[in-house]
């Protein structure tokens, strides 16, 4: 077992409001870790720390360290753009660009300066295959991504993320806008992807966390209450709060 990511004494503030309170946590490589907890518990803020998406919030302030492969990603000499090429993110709602399917997947490659058409085609195809979307769209690569269904759009966004070959994929409630059938497809995909990627997923759906994750962390009001193997959390939680939350008594 190898630790891919680590949070060390992490606290987050928005002006005077403390959103996360001294979190210590490490994530295993090639595993799926689920972050659960009621709305406003800080789990999305926490997720966005790993690719520094909170940097755009003017009042945001961080204490502590986030280490990826033992390196603090908030160090001054880190180039954020490079960091994000290594850490993909999939958002709550599918957010394809208003471009063709091909151009959506090729976007990350193009901004890295890859212009060779043959390389682009190979990488786009590979990413679409990984995202289990290739067979559905292989004849329509030039069509607008907005013509796809919601579930297909989300898988396209996953393909877009995978195309630049990150080692970590962050997912912020990736199925919350999808119907059950599309959700099942995305979940199956996540399960497949962990062979090659380290995945951190925020979810509201207890069943989903139980189905797809290896580890589960329960957050409450900015505190990490409990973090353990998923089966352990769901069968034998140490804390009452966790027990109450996963059995649906609050949240």
């Amino acid at each position: 077992m190898k630790n891919k990511l680590e949070a060390k004494n992490v606290s987050v503030f928005y002006d005077d409001f403390q959103a996360l309170n001294n979190i210590n946590m490490s994530f295993e490589e090639n595993a799926v870790t689920a972050l659960i907890g009621p709305s406003g518990c800080g789990k999305s803020t926490y997720l966005r720390l790993f690719n520094r998406m909170n940097d755009y919030i003017e009042s945001f302030r961080l204490e502590g360290e986030i280490l990826i492969d033992k390196k603090n990603i908030y160090n001054k000499n880190i180039i954020v753009e490079d960091l994000r090429k290594n850490i993909g993110m999939v958002f709550q709602k599918p957010n394809p660009f208003p471009k063709s399917i091909f151009e959506n997947v090729a976007y990350g490659l193009r901004i890295q300066g890859i212009k060779n058409k043959a390389i682009l085609r190979i990488k786009v195809r590979k990413a679409l295959q990984q995202a289990a979307l290739w067979d559905e769209v292989k004849n329509d690569l030039d069509k607008s991504a907005l013509t796809l269904s919601g579930g297909q759009q989300q898988r396209l966004c996953i393909a877009r993320t995978l195309a630049v070959e990150p080692s970590i994929v962050l997912m912020d409630e990736p199925t919350s806008a999808l119907d059950p059938i599309a959700t099942a497809k995305v979940e199956k995909l996540i399960y497949e992807l962990k062979k090659e990627y380290t995945i951190i997923i925020v979810t509201h759906n207890m069943q989903q966390a139980k189905r797809i994750s290896d580890y589960t962390a329960f957050f409450y009001m900015g505190d990490l209450i409990e973090y353990n193997k998923t089966e352990h959390i769901f069968t034998n939680p140490t804390h009452d709060r966790t027990q109450n939350y996963i059995t649906g008594r609050f949240g």
Binding site: M53, V80, E81, R84, G88, M89, P96, Y107, I111, V164
Partner: peptide
Amino acid sequence: NASFGMGAT
């Protein structure tokens, strides 16, 4: 956000 998330400036 999607574009930033992929490392675009």
